[in-house]
């Protein structure tokens, strides 16, 4: 969607305004929902009907969005023909009905391309700020984009509410740490308003083998979640946090003579957590299977039809027809007997 299209803010403008709105909502604990919306099969429609048609189509969608959301809500473009909508004063439960209204409205839209009438559908990904973790605006949008990807991958014309807050949040925290930026952009939803310290991971842990281990765990978890898009995230996150707390404690008690005993205790904890992670990994693998089945279902081979007549069949003109028919009967009878023999309850 063109960033400077009529009625829409540019990407930079909408981002700035949305950040302000987002921060206000966080500060005053106002429930807020973020949608990222895309028109299904946009690339194909552009290929088939050209840029003018695409512009018509986007104007139509924009008009639909204006009718569906309130004046005070923010609608703007992001890259790759996606539209981001920030809806304030809306709890997560309300997001679905709002998204459904958009989907329904889109289905009713029709566009002319020469003599043809083209119908469209939308895919919508959603996120909200009620998750209870420290949240960045970028996280909010990325979580919604994740939902959009799933919606598109599942065939479009649907709304998917993603819950991958921890994953994207951890990613942003790590990136900010690497850049040396403070982690205080987004106070927690229920954190004190002023002077709140981020409750997230320490900015820079000193080089330490235990910290490295924790980092390794974080990386593994991130990779898994990124790949699988999974449900097991919360438990994995708890495991990760427990490890980090353990490390923090170790660091604060650096000179403690009982350090060895505590270290042993933490090792046991790590062992338990590792086993839990293994279990969660199994769950993730199952999710991966589900996803793969979905992907496979999209590329079903139609198969090759039977061409029976090209192969010899058995008719009276066939050589040895009588003997062969008798053989067929014998094979059938042998198989029938086998079937009877193998029936449950038949003595062996």
């Amino acid at each position: 969607m063109p960033g400077s299209g009529p009625g829409l803010f540019s990407e930079a403008e909408v981002r700035r305004l949305m950040r302000i709105e987002f921060e206000r909502s966080q500060r005053y604990k106002i429930p807020l929902v973020c949608f990222v919306i895309a028109v299904d099969r946009m690339d194909r429609l552009l290929d088939m009907y050209g840029q003018d048609f695409k512009n018509d189509l986007l104007r139509g969608v924009q008009s639909l969005l204006r009718q569906t959301v309130r004046e005070s809500d923010l609608t703007g473009s992001v890259v790759d023909d996606k539209v981001v909508v920030l809806v304030t004063h809306t709890p997560p439960e309300g997001a679905r009905s709002l998204a459904n209204r958009m989907l329904e409205g889109a289905r009713k839209l029709s566009f002319r391309a020469g003599a043809r009438t083209i119908k469209i559908t939308l895919s919508i990904g959603g996120s909200h700020n009620q998750h209870g973790t420290n949240l960045f605006f970028d996280t909010l949008v990325e979580v919604a984009e994740g939902g959009l990807s799933v919606a598109q991958g599942a065939g479009g014309d649907r709304y998917v509410h993603s819950e991958l807050y921890e994953f994207f949040q951890a990613k942003h925290e790590r990136e900010r740490r690497e850049r040396g930026e403070p982690l205080t952009e987004a106070p927690a939803f229920d954190a004190p308003l002023e002077g709140a310290q981020s409750a997230s991971l320490p900015a820079a842990l000193p080089a330490d083998p235990v910290a490295d281990l924790a980092d390794a765990h974080r990386d593994v978890l991130r990779d898994i979640v990124a790949e699988e898009g999974t449900k097991a995230l919360q438990s994995a996150r708890k495991a990760q946090e427990a490890l980090v707390h353990a490390i923090e404690d170790m660091q604060t008690k650096g000179g403690d003579p009982n350090l060895a005993a505590e270290l042993e205790s933490y090792k046991r904890q790590i062992d338990v957590l590792e086993r839990r992670i293994a279990k969660l990994t199994q769950l993730l693998a199952m999710t991966e299977d589900d996803l793969r089945r979905l992907i496979d279902a999209k590329s079903i081979d139609p198969g090759v039809a039977s061409i029976y007549k090209t192969v010899q069949g058995l008719d009276d003109a066939t050589s040895n027809a009588k003997a062969k028919k008798e053989l067929m009967k014998r094979i059938f009878q042998a198989n029938l007997e086998l079937k009877e023999q193998l029936k449950p309850g038949t003595p062996g």
């Binding site: 192969v311 010899q312 069949g313 058995l314 066939t318 028919k325 067929m328 059938f332």
Partner: peptide, 9 residues
């Protein structure tokens, strides 16, 4: 085996 499959009523 395919031929048997075909010839089977």
């Amino acid at each position: 085996a395919l031929k048997i499959a075909h010839d089977m009523p």
